[in-house]
């Protein structure tokens, strides 16, 4: 079944067969993660938060990857972690994208004071390192899941805004947009009908990069203990919780970190290929 799914996805992607090997591998990895996230309760041998063994039990037949500091099954938490970490990152990215992207297009099309006000706000928000700003905001509002999503989305939307605005400005300066304005078309129609179709390819590529970035930021915050809070399974916190094992030569803490790395790399390779394809299409 999963094979049929894979082949369908590959076909749906259109031309993925001709993609470079690294991008193909990246696609397969992404699909694998998606399956893990969606099917977590079916695959995981134990529940997410149940205490099923002793503390820090070694790898065994019962606990393939051992247990964590409270005696929860590490493999199960790793699988549930896919769901939590990816799900949150995805929600955050989409939120950042819709707001940042739309406002960016509006700023570019409207120009004048609308653009000035939006751009200056974004300038100030971007003048501080994102992680530091997130730390300040989380201190103020507390780190609940909803706060985490809203804060990261807001900060990330500024980057999307910049890109969307820059790309759209190039489009808006073209004669066909002026021609449409001179016919008496409204701003919304021009944004959605004339500008949007021309900014989609770079924005889609950016979607991938932003997802990586959000995903890494959330993981970093969780690692620092101020992101996703226990007992929810999450890769960043799992690294933190088991970090002590490293000193004893145990690689277990590297597994959740590796899971993060693998997905991020996969997304990056796919994005890189997509960017190449998009720039090729333009010529």
């Amino acid at each position: 079944m999963s094979r049929a799914l894979v082949s369908h996805m590959v076909k749906a992607w259109g031309g993925a067969r001709n993609a470079p090997v690294m991008a193909q591998v990246g696609l397969v990895v992404m699909i694998f993660y998606a399956a893990l996230a969606l099917l977590a309760p079916l695959i995981a041998p134990y529940p997410e938060t149940a205490l099923v063994g002793g503390m820090f039990e070694p790898w065994s037949a019962t606990f393939p990857l051992g247990t964590d500091q409270l005696g929860r099954d590490f493999l199960s938490r790793l699988i549930y972690g896919a769901r939590n970490t990816i799900g949150l990152a995805l929600a955050t990215t989409l939120l950042a994208f819709t707001t940042g992207g739309f406002l960016g297009l509006v700023a570019a099309e409207r120009g004048g004071w609308v653009d000035q006000v939006l751009s200056r706000i974004v300038d100030v928000l971007m003048a501080m390192p994102q992680l530091i700003f997130a730390l300040v905001l989380l201190t103020a509002f507390g780190s609940s899941i909803l706060n985490l999503v809203l804060i990261i989305a807001a900060l990330d939307a500024t980057r999307v805004f910049r890109l969307a605005r820059a790309v759209a400005l190039n489009v808006v300066s073209l004669d066909f947009v002026e021609a449409a304005r001179l016919q008496g078309h409204g701003a919304l129609r021009i944004i959605l009908f004339e500008v949007l179709p021309n900014v989609i390819p770079p924005l889609v590529a950016e979607l991938g990069l932003r997802f990586c970035f959000v995903f890494l930021t959330i993981s970093a915050l969780s690692f620092l203990g101020i992101g996703i809070q226990p007992p929810t399974a999450d890769w960043g916190s799992m690294v933190r919780e088991t970090a002590a094992l490293i000193s004893y030569g145990d690689v277990t803490p590297l597994l959740p970190a590796g899971a993060i790395v693998l997905l991020a790399i996969a997304v990056n390779f796919v994005v890189d290929w997509f960017l190449l394809k998009a720039s090729g299409l333009k010529e």
């Binding site: 690294m22 690294v239 803490p253 590297l254």
Partner: peptide, 20 residues
Amino acid sequence: AMTLTSISLPEFFVAYLLMF
């Protein structure tokens, strides 16, 4: 290839890997 990989590496992963 290294660039694409390294922008995907969280600092804590590199740190623990080096430590290991």
